[in-house]
């Protein structure tokens, strides 16, 4: 009797171990991660684009992402790259893709910044900070995107 109890305990723990082994969530397990697989060609893994002219999508405000995608599909915002891909995103599920990128940790662009240039434009940038926040962190309530840490080439374009 004791033996059988012991045995069932061991069997149970073994089953649980197997279940844990199989259920371990990987970085690509969510539907949003899978539906955005093609995006990483330009926007980097998990939306952390390493290029100078491509925006970082990691940590993006989901509502802003959806607005941008909608604007591209309607031609309100133009880009030879994003007009077709915006339709791809709409096709495969903009909500899941937006949620996926919003949940990723942003790694700021590794572009070197000239501190003198920063001080020169600090006063000019007040026009930007009224909407994008004093440090460019954006405003989720107003669906204003964060500009902080985005690559310089993208901000110039």
């Amino acid at each position: 009797m004791r033996k059988s109890l012991l045995m069932s305990l061991v069997v149970t723990s073994f089953v649980l171990m197997l279940a844990a082994f199989n259920a371990e969530a990987g970085p690509l397990d969510s539907a949003g991660a899978q539906k955005s697989l093609v995006c990483s060609a330009c926007h980097g893994f998990a939306g952390n684009a390493p290029g100078n002219t491509v925006p970082i999508l990691a940590g993006i405000n989901a509502a802003y992402f959806k607005k941008a995608i909608k604007d591209y599909t309607e031609g309100k915002r133009t880009s030879p790259e994003m007009e077709p891909y915006s339709k791809y995103v709409m096709q495969f599920g903009v909500d899941e893709i937006a949620s996926y990128f919003a949940a990723q940790k942003k790694q700021p662009a590794k572009v070197k910044i000239d501190p003198k240039a920063v001080s020169r434009v600090a006063t000019l940038a007040t026009q930007c900070t009224s909407c994008h926040g004093p440090k460019g962190d954006g405003d989720d309530n107003r669906i204003t995107p964060a500009l902080r840490g985005q690559p310089v080439g993208f901000l110039q374009a």
Partner: peptide, 10 residues
């Protein structure tokens, strides 16, 4: 150039 930086890494 941005594309190549990203996709080579991908």
């Amino acid at each position: 150039l941005a594309w190549r930086a990203s996709i080579w890494n991908d």
